[in-house]
Simulated scan of single mutants.
Amino acid sequence: MRPRWPGARAAGCRRSPARRVPTRDSAPGWSRGWSPPPSTRSSSAASCSAATSACRAALLIDPRGFQFPQVGVVFSLFWAFCVAVVYLTVSWTLSGRTYGYLVMGLRVLGRGGRPLRLVGAAIRAVFVVVVPIGIAWVLVSRDNRSLQDIVLGTRVVYDWQPRGAESPAQD
Rank of each mutant, 00 (worst) to 15 (best):
G105Q: 00
A121R: 04
L147A: 15
A50W: 13
G65I: 02
G29A: 08
G105N: 08
D143V: 02
S95C: 04
S31V: 09
R111I: 10
A11E: 13
W92A: 12
S167G: 03
W30H: 05
R97S: 12
A125S: 15
R20P: 02
A169S: 15
P3N: 08
P38Y: 05
L139F: 14
R107V: 09
L116W: 09
L139M: 14
G105P: 05
R163D: 08
D159L: 02
A11I: 10
V21K: 03
G113S: 02
G105L: 03
G29Y: 06
C48N: 01
R4V: 13
R64N: 05
R142G: 11
T23Q: 11
L94S: 11
T154E: 02
S141D: 15
E166F: 02
W137Y: 13
W79T: 00
A51G: 12
P3T: 07
T89I: 02
L118C: 15
L116M: 15
I150V: 14
A54V: 02
R111S: 14
R155D: 12
P37G: 02
A121G: 10
D25H: 09
P162C: 09
A136W: 07
L109G: 02
R2F: 12
V156H: 05
L152V: 03
W160S: 12
T23F: 06
R64P: 06
R145G: 03
A84Y: 00
S146A: 11
S95R: 08
V119Q: 12
V140M: 09
D143K: 11
V151W: 10
Q67P: 01
R41C: 07
S44I: 14
R114Y: 13
V85S: 01
V131T: 14
V85I: 02
F78P: 00
G110L: 10
I123A: 15
P22D: 01
A46T: 05
R24L: 15
A51L: 14
A125L: 02
A80G: 00
F75E: 00
I135Q: 14
R41Y: 03
I133P: 11
R32F: 11
R32Q: 02
L109I: 08
A27Y: 11
S39Y: 09
L118P: 09
V128N: 13
V108N: 08
R145M: 05
S47L: 08
V85Q: 01
T154F: 00
L139C: 08
Q67G: 09
P63D: 04
L152Q: 04
R4G: 11
R20K: 10
R20I: 13
F68H: 06
I61P: 02
S167E: 11
R117V: 15
G7I: 03
T89C: 02
G134Q: 07
A57F: 06
G65T: 07
S53R: 07
W160D: 11
S42G: 15
L88S: 12
W92E: 13
Y101E: 10
L59E: 08
G110Y: 11
S141T: 04
R114W: 05
V90W: 03
W137E: 10
R9F: 13
